[in-house]
């Protein structure tokens, strides 16, 4: 059973998740199907900045986050930025979109100059997230759990972060049991995606270097 406090917690997190999105004037540009390689590179770079700003605005609303040590807050955001961006991108990519939009987006990514060896694991990850058919509450909580990973570099008070993460994991676990009673492995599968995210994040640094050189 989810307690009243836990329900209130989920409500705050989901509202923040819905409120903080990439600005529409930026996403509209993504859907233009006429663009040069340079325009594409500039837009995807602009989006990366927006993604980080959106991540920070969302994270400030996570109950307890702003009570953490200030430098730990920065360490958590720095450490989780790439994973959180991939997770959010995967969720957006799998959302129902008007006809043709998914194809334009996929085409844009494939023609961005990013090497195929990185594109493949990225799209594989997007597909594996899509297969989960997560509801909004699960997406928001999984993102929160990613951000509140205690073993990021330079985090000093790991126990404080761990306590906060445990609170979120407990709520998510209960939600999975209640929402997916016929699939007792659902929670474990969600957490399995976090391991995939870590792998993808390790590819990311190499992906950037090769892309910049291209």
């Amino acid at each position: 059973e989810i307690t009243k406090d836990q329900q209130a917690l989920v409500k705050i997190i989901v509202e923040a998740y819905n409120r903080h999105q990439i600005p529409q004037d930026v996403t509209k540009k993504l859907l233009q199907d006429q663009y040069s390689a340079e325009e594409n590179f500039l837009l995807l770079t602009e989006m990366a900045t927006n993604q980080v700003q959106v991540l920070v605005e969302f994270t400030k609303n996570i109950p307890g986050f702003l009570s953490l040590d200030r430098e730990d807050q920065i360490a958590l955001l720095k450490g989780s930025a790439v994973e959180a961006m991939f997770l959010r991108s995967a969720q957006v990519f799998n959302r129902k979109m008007p006809s043709g939009h998914t194809e334009v987006l996929e085409d844009r990514i494939r023609k961005s100059g990013i090497s195929e060896e990185f594109i493949t694991p990225m799209f594989n990850f997007y597909k594996s997230i899509g297969e989960l058919h997560m509801v909004r509450e699960e997406q928001a909580l999984l993102t929160t759990i990613t951000i509140l990973t205690p073993d990021r570099p330079y985090v000093k008070d790991q126990q404080a972060v761990e306590r906060l993460q445990e609170t979120m994991l407990d709520v998510l676990r209960k939600m999975c049991v209640l929402q997916h009673p016929q699939d007792p492995q659902y929670f474990a599968r969600l957490l399995g995606r976090l391991t995939e995210l870590r792998t993808l994040s390790h590819y990311h640094a190499e992906m950037l270097t090769s892309w910049r050189m291209n």
């Binding site: 900045t49 980080v52 700003q53 920070v56 400030k60 702003l66 200030r70 920065i74």
Partner: peptide, 21 residues
């Protein structure tokens, strides 16, 4: 290192935004 510094700058500015308000 340069791109990591850029990321940290963006994060610090965005975090500070609330305090300034």
């Amino acid at each position: 290192p340069a791109s990591n510094l850029g990321l940290e700058d963006i994060i610090r500015k965005a975090l500070m935004g609330n305090l300034e308000e």
